[in-house]
Design a binder for these strands. Structure first.
Lengths: 147, 147
DNA sequence: CAATGGATGATAATGATTATCATTCCCATA
DNA sequence: TATGGGAATGATAATCATTATCATCCATTG
């Protein structure tokens, strides 16, 4: 909490630990969509000894703190992503063959406007309190396209 | 294949079986999002003896035949939905608390236009062959809203 | 009727994630 | 500085959804 550069963001959190820092460092370094196992593998190269359970626990913890977002793209494992304020809002292209995930932030302005409108009307109509949205395109990436 | 009213749609398929018919019947009767277990429970009331493995196998089979769609809304089990030609294209509202899924087809025209445009440009830009898309809103349904 | 290939049911196996629990660590207070 | 308590951790068992295996069954064709 003190001296690690995140003080502002943690009001009602638990301890700031090396595990949590190490996990954030991984995201800072590799910037992209990482699964729990990606993070685990990456950490175990440098600092040994962190258990996989701690990785899962702290990914969830960091998500609760608002530092990470979690995505479930169909099959397989969940993906986590750093919530970077400087980063544009973006959506995902997911390859159905290899599972690769591509971010895109083009056209998002147009999308966002529409989505905001829709959101407003939908929450009224269905008495649904909308907190977030997720738009994905599924298909085949260039590597997998040739079957 | 003969006499059950689906002949046209099955060219290169395997046998048409009572299991497959039974599963489709469940969807016809209950019309909505059903998990494998929903289907299993529902079938075991009337016709006994179908195993859960057969349910999974045939849900997948029916999806390959284009009769069902499969959705993964984050946690929990996959949901299957009847592909009804008469039914409008729709998207989903998903309650983060209870997992309830609400369909909506309002505003979908506006969405679709934007999505088609985006799709075209994205596939060019990222050399990605887009096959489908999925837009979900996450939040709290009316029952869960009061915490 | 025998052979063939798909379909099925029971169940084992898998993979991701969560729960459990004993131990350790950190910090505040005595 | 010793101590007590709550949070964090690692190892591992448990869970849950789904898939794989395999022996059997069934319908069709030769």
């Amino acid at each position: 909490m003190r001296g690690h550069g995140h003080g502002r963001r943690f009001r009602k959190m638990g301890k700031w630990t090396v595990s949590r820092q190490a996990i954030l460092d991984v995201f800072a370094k590799k910037s992209g969509h990482l699964t729990a196992d990606d993070v685990y593998m990456c950490i175990r190269k440098n600092s040994p000894g962190m258990g996989i359970a701690t990785v899962y626990r702290n990914l969830e913890f960091l998500r609760e703190q608002g530092l990470l977002s979690k995505y479930n793209f169909g099959e397989g494992s969940a993906h986590y992503e750093l919530n970077d304020d400087e980063r544009e809002h973006h959506h995902h292209l997911i390859c159905k063959s290899c599972g690769k995930v591509i971010d895109y932030s083009e056209f998002v302005d147009r999308e966002l406007k529409l989505i905001k409108d829709t959101e407003k009307e939908l929450s009224k109509k269905h008495k649904f309190d909308i907190e977030s949205h997720e738009l994905c395109f599924y298909g085949k990436c260039s590597s997998c396209a040739g079957r």
